[in-house]
Nucleic acid binder design. Structure first.
Lengths: 152, 152
DNA sequence: TGACATATTCGGTATTCACCGAATATGATT
DNA sequence: AATCATATTCGGTGAATACCGAATATGTCA
């Protein structure tokens, strides 16, 4: 039975790391509460319950629930359940790799879009440019794949 | 004196590439008109004027101006001026590298945030985790730097 | 300097997003 | 099946974003 965190181990919701992470990933499309939650849970030594997140971040239960589900879907958080209770806890995945996987995925998608667009074009200069870009993005995608699989 | 594009060479604003690119980068925080403009200009053989963009994408002149400036700031478009006229034209940069540079930059920033946060932590398990993550993100950043400089 | 062409800024408006608390759904136990 | 604890969904509301057209700024030429 995991204990709730003592006040000493509980992150401060105004921690500079949380604020900096929010400034980094919110402009990238991450909703604000999800961003802060990611930062908060990254600073927690153990997985935390929704109620602890609610207390720690001072947000509504429903907002916490929605954000946690989103982060789980992105591979940033992992959900832990427990026999005998409906309560769940969320902890960070290894490396919060969701952040990197999402970027790798978008680069791979871009490479595919460019390759498809090159196949559809009729102007030679545009076709050549799209092919060149597509190959470049594919190279970057392959490199990312390599370094991300080494990290396992 | 560059001629305006003929109808044959002018991209269709409903081109599948433009729509797919919009679906990819708008959720990443790119404003919709800027996303469509990027796709449109990537399909143009030559740099295009704001009026051509307005006609091609069916948006207001002011929206086109704001979006073009934003894409220029992101390193995705390049602005071409011409003696004797105030008119400007926008064309894509090499590889639209702004997309990749921005991702590399965010990974580098993440590595730095983690390193700083590890230095500030007092719980050993959290410190170790942040250090490990920071090193991982730094490795990915370095690999991206490598492959992006080869692309030049 | 004035006229004109062009880009940019500004304020208004509609739409979307973000967040909340209430209502509802769900899981566990007796 | 009833009860309770917990998570999730839903609808309302305010804030932020997106886009427009008018107003303004800016560059060029005579």
């Amino acid at each position: 039975m995991m204990n709730d965190m003592t006040d000493k181990a509980r992150p401060d919701c105004n921690d500079p790391f949380i604020e900096a992470l929010e400034r980094l990933i919110v402009p990238m499309g991450m909703p604000p509460i999800a961003a802060r939650m990611q930062g908060y849970i990254m600073l927690c030594p153990e997985p935390v319950s929704l109620d602890e997140i609610v207390d720690g971040l001072r947000v509504s239960k429903s907002s916490a629930s929605v954000a946690a589900r989103l982060l789980e879907r992105y591979g940033i958080l992992r959900c832990y359940t427990e026999r005998g209770t409906k309560r769940v806890r969320y902890g960070v995945t290894e490396h919060c790799a969701g952040f990197l996987l999402e970027q790798m995925r978008s680069i791979g998608t871009m490479a595919a879009l460019l390759r498809d667009a090159a196949g559809a074009r009729r102007d030679d200069a545009v076709t050549a440019r799209l092919k060149d870009m597509g190959a470049f993005y594919a190279r970057v995608h392959t490199a990312l794949e390599g370094v991300l699989s080494e990290g396992d």
